[in-house]
């Protein structure tokens, strides 16, 4: 009996703190697969955000820095400049990147920092129990938009890929999803592209991943997958929003 596929070597945990059906777990494995395939674990420096993924260092076997909420792009900027030969991966959630850290991600992108960003968009603040995030959909109920997000007073969800695409120094921007096997495979390809860009010195590359947060959305995992299919994909179309080819 030989093993065709099992947990990627650079993933060290046998059990994460993520909730059942949480998308972070899938993305974590995809990162592990790509890191193993590219053989970059030993030169990788990863920023952990404030949010559900804050204890990434318990899951990935590489150097990790835990950043203040929203500041990973600034921290990563400095690390990449101190160690231009190392691989810097910025991992952020939607509250981290698109709310408190919006200035940091825009300016890191605008400076064309040669780093890879994985932006997990699950339309809520998961760690703190499901509050409204900048990407929460109109009408979506959260603990801080109890009768559903309204445009009046709360604005519309922010489309980050489209926003950053206007910054000419961004080199690759793609939005994918992990709500189906096919989309997960496409997410892995996008992660590989965003990693490869950094290794080739192309510049700022980001993949925005629509991800499930069953506990935050207060639905079983199976319905969370449908929520992306039926709701999120309409407002957050998948696709490549910037590429150098």
């Amino acid at each position: 009996m030989n093993i065709i596929k099992t947990q990627p070597k650079s993933i060290t945990t046998d059990s994460t703190k993520y909730c059942p059906g949480c998308g972070h777990g899938i993305i974590l494995r995809l990162i592990g697969e790509v890191v193993d395939e590219l053989g970059i674990r030993e030169r990788m420096i990863l920023t952990a955000p404030v949010g559900c993924a804050v204890v990434l260092y318990d899951y990935i076997f590489c150097d990790v820095v835990e950043c203040a909420h929203g500041r990973a792009p600034a921290v990563g900027t400095a690390i990449k400049r101190v160690h231009p030969d190392k691989f810097v991966l910025i991992y952020q959630g939607d509250g981290d990147l698109a709310a408190i850290g919006m200035a940091e991600i825009i300016h890191a992108a605008n400076r064309g920092e040669n780093m890879s960003v994985i932006f997990v968009n699950n339309a809520t603040y998961g760690m703190t129990g499901g509050q409204m995030a900048p990407t929460t959909l109109i009408g979506q109920k959260t603990t801080t938009s109890p009768s559903g997000r309204t445009v009046k007073g709360m604005g519309k969800p922010i489309r980050v890929c489209e926003l950053l695409a206007t910054l000419e120094e961004t080199k690759y921007l793609e939005r994918t999803s992990i709500n189906s096997v096919r989309n997960i495979n496409k997410t892995k390809a996008a992660i590989r592209k965003v990693f490869q860009n950094q290794l080739n010195g192309i510049g700022f590359s980001m993949v925005e991943v629509l991800s499930m947060c069953p506990v935050g959305w207060k639905v079983p995992p199976i319905e969370a997958v449908q929520f992306i299919e039926e709701q999120m994909l309409n407002y957050f179309p998948l696709g490549v929003y910037k590429d150098t080819e």
Binding site: I4, K5, Y18, S180
Partner: peptide, 16 residues
């Protein structure tokens, strides 16, 4: 391997 791909906790191992 569909199960391996969707599983958020890497519970599956594909074997021959």
């Amino acid at each position: 391997g569909a199960c391996y791909i969707i599983c958020p906790d890497c519970c599956f191992t594909l074997i021959e």
